[in-house]
């Protein structure tokens, strides 16, 4: 197809617009990284944009020498690992049976799960339930209530449905139990979807802050997201007392906040190549089902 002159002009503008979008997308993060290595005086003066000014690593030393930061960071790792394992096991346990077309009641149980996507109990009934169960200040408040994501379950179900029936039938003829077939035949064939699900759940757990904010009062149990949240909200308190008068205080926390943000995001960035590959294919798979 031949291109008109107008279309050629449009294409140039298009590239400029897209580059601008890339710039704006990356800017806030690059700015935070730059701030984390900059001196207080330079952030104070509003000099820090894309590159560190007055380069130093002292702020990193300050944050990393805070024992509470590490306690909270380790908590996040623990909650992510435990939460992801529980989520993966439970999601498989519901997605696999519901993927079997011959299963009686399959439609009912699928709808039973899907309904919860459109109508949820709401903040306060959830809060009351978790308190009544005695989950307050325990890991269970974080890893149990969000264990199954129905959206993820539907993606898994679609994947299982596409595994050729013959492979399982051969095993069943040989006298293999359902459990055995699932573990020995189905799961090894499902490595891509298990990897996708693992990343879906792990990222959700790593980024989660609200359940801990609601149910935890013990600082030693906080995930690092709450540590960061308290820094942000604390600094805001300083700000409200008059923006310019308390400049010094806000600046110190600006440094520390930036460092904490960078350290919190770091693991996500490290696995980002995998995340973006698996997430995209996972979302596509989910969209097949609508």
């Amino acid at each position: 197809m031949k291109e008109s002159a107008q279309y050629k002009v449009f294409k140039v503008f298009n590239v400029i617009i897209l580059l601008l979008i890339v710039y704006v997308t990356l800017y806030p993060f690059v700015n935070i990284v730059a701030q984390s290595f900059s001196s207080e005086a330079n952030i104070n003066a509003g000099n820090v944009t894309l590159l560190p000014k007055g380069f130093n690593v002292e702020t990193y030393e300050v944050v990393m020498s805070d024992s509470m930061f590490w306690i909270n960071y380790k908590n996040t790792v623990l909650y992510t690992v435990v939460g992801t394992i529980i989520s993966l096991v439970l999601s498989t346990m519901i997605a696999y049976p519901l993927s079997k077309k011959r299963l009686k009641g399959r439609r009912f149980w699928t709808m039973f799960a899907v309904f919860t996507m459109f109508f949820s109990g709401g903040l306060i009934p959830n809060y009351v339930l978790i308190q009544k169960l005695g989950f307050g200040n325990t890991i269970w408040a974080i890893v149990i209530p969000t264990a199954i994501s129905v959206f993820n379950m539907l993606i898994m179900k679609t994947f299982f449905e596409n595994i050729p029936e013959e492979l399982e039938e051969a095993a069943i003829v040989d006298g293999s139990s359902t459990y055995n077939t699932l573990i020995k035949i189905v799961l090894p064939l499902s490595k891509p979807i298990l990897a996708t699900m693992m990343l879906f759940y792990a990222v959700t757990h790593w980024n989660s802050w609200f359940p801990a904010f609601l149910y935890f009062s013990d600082k030693e149990l906080f995930p690092v997201s709450i540590y960061l949240r308290n820094l942000i909200k604390g600094a805001e308190g300083t700000l409200s007392s008059g923006a310019t008068s308390a400049d010094n205080l806000t600046q110190i926390s600006s440094n520390i906040k930036s460092v904490t943000m960078v350290l919190t995001v770091l693991p996500i960035l490290c696995i980002y190549p995998y995340i973006q590959k698996y997430f995209v294919s996972g979302v596509m798979l989910g969209s097949v089902k609508g």
Partner: peptide, 25 residues
């Protein structure tokens, strides 16, 4: 363009507050 989607909402809020701060960009 996908990158910000994977940031924790706390980090996003932190970045927003830094950007709109009195000494921010």
């Amino acid at each position: 363009s996908y990158l910000p989607h994977f940031f924790s909402i706390v980090v996003v809020a932190g970045m927003v507050l830094e950007l709109v701060a009195v000494n921010g960009t």
